[in-house]
């Protein structure tokens, strides 16, 4: 997880899906696909697969969960990672190792203790090229725009939102705020229908700091690109930055050991001016039902009835709107009389 536990110092709001109707959300696609892969699994931890052994958990997430949100009036843009920055290699290597360890544990435990095995199965989830390609295929059939980032997907998504082409960035990580996203939504991939929203503006105003300060706080705690300083948590980091202004001055004043933040200037610069494409196309198309059906049902053996039902949600959204307003007119029944405020004057 990038940003350590910086979430502790970010003011959060909780909103229901109805508050997001009409908003445009730039999704950190790798992050969401990872969420689908790790959570959509059979009870023993095996991901969903077709009979050719190809993983379909992420496709299931897209066709059922994403379309569900689309039916609530949310417009999505999926932003995919390019090549990771050099500085992230250490983190990626560590993730790969823990994934491989988890995979071994899972295979060893699945016969002995399915409950314990599930935890490891989730930790072994991995977004590979095949997952990305099939997700892109399905999204494009659904008419959802796809944007490629030259580097970090979160950075590109943040850029799109900061420019005003999306209202929020959806990711589990907090990094998009550091990249300048005005608003971050967490828990988007889960179907519980209430989401955490963090506003960059509010965060900065609450602590009376700049985005540069927030980035320095994150670097002190540790990010995907550095380990952070041992023993410094979010509250302490915030206090230090508020007192001294920036990492340079902390180092000068407190003579702290810079182990874990050696590259702080490069990292800060990367958050402030990440590698992004300034030209991208965002266009929503109506879903191509026959392509979705043949891709999911013929190629990956999804239930045709379920896929059709999911599709009908996004195709007939308009008719449903009309019907629900008729319903609310119908249900008028009085068993009590309305009093007036003036009765208590």
């Amino acid at each position: 997880m990038g940003g350590g536990d910086i979430g502790e110092i970010l003011p959060k709001h909780y909103v229901g899906v109805e508050n997001l109707s009409g908003s445009i959300i730039a999704v950190d696609a790798y992050n969401m696909l990872y969420q689908f892969l790790s959570t959509i699994r059979q009870p023993d931890g095996t991901p969903l697969m077709d009979s050719n052994g190809r993983i379909t958990s992420h496709l299931s997430g897209i066709i059922y969960r994403v379309t569900n949100l689309m039916a609530c009036g949310i417009l999505f843009i999926f932003v995919f990672d390019g090549s990771p920055p050099e500085l992230k290699m250490k983190t990626l290597k560590r993730r790969k190792e823990s994934r491989e360890y988890a995979r071994m544990q899972w295979e060893y435990l699945r016969e002995i203790s399915p409950e314990l095995a599930l935890k490891y199965a989730k930790a072994s989830a991995y977004v590979d090229e095949e997952i990305v390609e099939s997700a892109k295929k399905l999204l494009s059939y659904l008419g959802v725009p796809i944007v490629q980032s030259p580097s970090e997907g979160e950075a590109q998504a943040a850029f799109i939102a900061a420019r005003g082409d999306a209202h929020h960035v959806a990711s589990q990580d907090y990094d998009s705020l550091l990249f300048g996203a005005p608003s971050l939504i967490r828990n988007m991939s889960i179907s519980h229908r209430h989401y955490t929203i963090i506003s960059l503006h509010e965060t900065l105003k609450t602590h009376n700091i700049t985005r540069e300060n927030l980035i320095d706080v994150a670097i002190l705690i540790g990010t995907d690109y550095n380990d952070g300083i041992r023993g410094i948590g979010p509250k302490k980091a915030l206090k230090l930055i508020k007192k001294y202004g920036c990492i340079e001055k902390i180092i000068a004043a407190k003579k702290i050991d810079t182990e874990g933040i050696e590259d702080y200037q490069i990292i800060r610069e990367m958050f402030l001016h990440p590698d992004v494409y300034e030209n991208y196309e965002i266009k929503w198309n109506p879903p191509d039902e026959s392509k979705v059906l043949s891709f999911l049902c013929d190629e990956h053996e999804f239930s045709e009835a379920r896929v059709r039902r999911a599709l009908s949600r996004i195709v007939r959204e308009r008719d449903d709107d009309d019907r629900s307003s008729r319903d609310s007119e119908k249900r008028r029944k009085k068993s009590s009389e309305q009093a007036r405020i003036s009765d208590w004057l």
Partner: peptide, 26 residues
């Protein structure tokens, strides 16, 4: 009796109070 609802936005810089008259069972 009426209902009073109170909440605050923006760290208390916005204060909202609603009063709502009840329905009386007839």
């Amino acid at each position: 009796y009426p209902l009073r609802i109170e909440f605050e936005l923006a760290d208390g810089a916005v204060h909202i109070m609603y009063l709502l008259a009840p329905r009386i069972e007839s």
